[in-house]
């Protein structure tokens, strides 16, 4: 029997998927042995019983059975453990008042616990730790659960709001389109009508166009309002009932702690440069088509030419080294 077949067959009752395509496999987090649904019903309907697998002496209960999400049992087990641990250890960065180091330490500790539980290292102690933490921090845990629930609710609300707005916008746009089409038709007819009455053609066209312009529809106005609302969407600003702090520092992030110095050490005189290699590239269609510009190339080359000209390594590194030793 190969692996594929075995996977599709319940090892207890030997039913396989070929004959009963509706078969579902369940596992119990006690031992993660795979058993088909009908077997579970059969064996555990009268109360807790031993796992039917040979050599497995775990006592299983029916209500703990669940369907397997991940094919790999190891992954499934770890996910379950994670779920359990995170229900208890649910602090967020906010609980540490933004102290990244402390938070990282905490996360590391949690990972250790998960790893130990997953690999069966020192399980008794770790369980004890989990329990005592839960007892000691019950209040905090509950608060955090509440908070995460609120977060999710807020998120859902916001999504709903945005979806509604989008729908409205689309319908308004459709309305505007229709009105415009009707207006154009009307203008055409009106022009013909007036011309048949016998006035000068240019004047008539001018007049009709003016009236069309004045007929700026109410739908259009509504759309503008809607756009305004979307622009200052209350849900992006509002979270947990208070204004979210928008970017803490006012200086934008720059990777090297400052903007580039704008004064250059060279003057770019593209028409003077005579570089056989680059000039050739400029003539090639595939280069030009993809936006090749000689001035950019020259600029980059010249920047690199002077990059670090004023760094005197022997002086700068000497002082640095001595300070390191001290």
């Amino acid at each position: 029997m190969d692996e594929e077949e075995r996977r599709e067959m319940c090892p207890i009752c030997k039913t396989d998927r070929y004959l009963s395509p509706n078969m579902r496999f369940l596992v119990n987090p006690e031992c993660y042995h795979k058993i088909c649904e009908s077997c579970v019903d059969r064996i555990f309907s009268l109360g807790p019983a031993q796992c039917p697998y040979l050599g497995c002496d775990k006592i299983l209960r029916r209500n703990k059975f669940k369907s397997q999400v991940f094919e790999d049992v190891g992954v499934e087990k770890e996910v379950d453990i994670r779920k359990r641990v995170f229900n208890v250890f649910n602090k967020t960065l906010d609980d540490f008042e933004g102290d990244q180091d402390e938070f990282n330490k905490y996360l590391e500790e949690v990972e250790d616990i998960i790893y130990n539980l997953d690999n069966g290292i020192d399980v008794v102690n770790v369980e004890e730790k989990l329990k005592s933490y839960e007892d000691m921090n019950r209040q905090l845990i509950l608060a955090n659960v509440e908070r995460s629930r609120q977060d999710i609710m807020n998120f859902e609300q916001r999504q709903k709001f945005e979806k509604e707005m989008k729908m409205k916008k689309r319908s308004l746009e459709r309305q505007i389109e229709q009105e415009e089409r009707a207006n154009a038709e009307w203008a055409k007819k009106e022009i013909v009508n007036q011309l048949s009455m016998g006035s000068s053609s240019d004047e008539v066209i001018e007049n009709v166009k003016k009236t069309v312009k004045l007929k700026k529809s109410s739908a259009r106005r509504k759309l503008e309002d809607l756009n305004k609302v979307l622009r200052n969407n209350p849900y992006t600003m509002l979270q947990n009932g208070k204004l979210r702090k928008k970017d803490v520092s006012k200086t934008p992030f720059t990777p090297f702690n400052g903007d580039r110095d704008l004064s250059k050490r060279y003057k770019l005189t593209t028409d003077i440069y005579n570089d056989p290699f680059i000039v050739q590239l400029e003539k090639r269609k595939d280069f030009v088509a993809s936006g090749f510009q000689t001035s950019v190339v020259y600029d980059r080359l010249l920047t690199e030419a002077f990059l670090g000209l004023g760094c005197y390594i022997s002086e700068e590194k000497k002082t640095q080294k001595s300070s390191l030793i001290l």
Partner: peptide
């Protein structure tokens, strides 16, 4: 507003930080 010159950029490179010596 802070400005950094090209030299400072070079000082940020690993070639300067790790592989330049007196």
């Amino acid at each position: 507003v802070k400005r950094i010159s090209d030299d400072d950029l070079y000082r940020n490179s690993t070639q300067y930080r790790l592989w330049s010596f007196s």
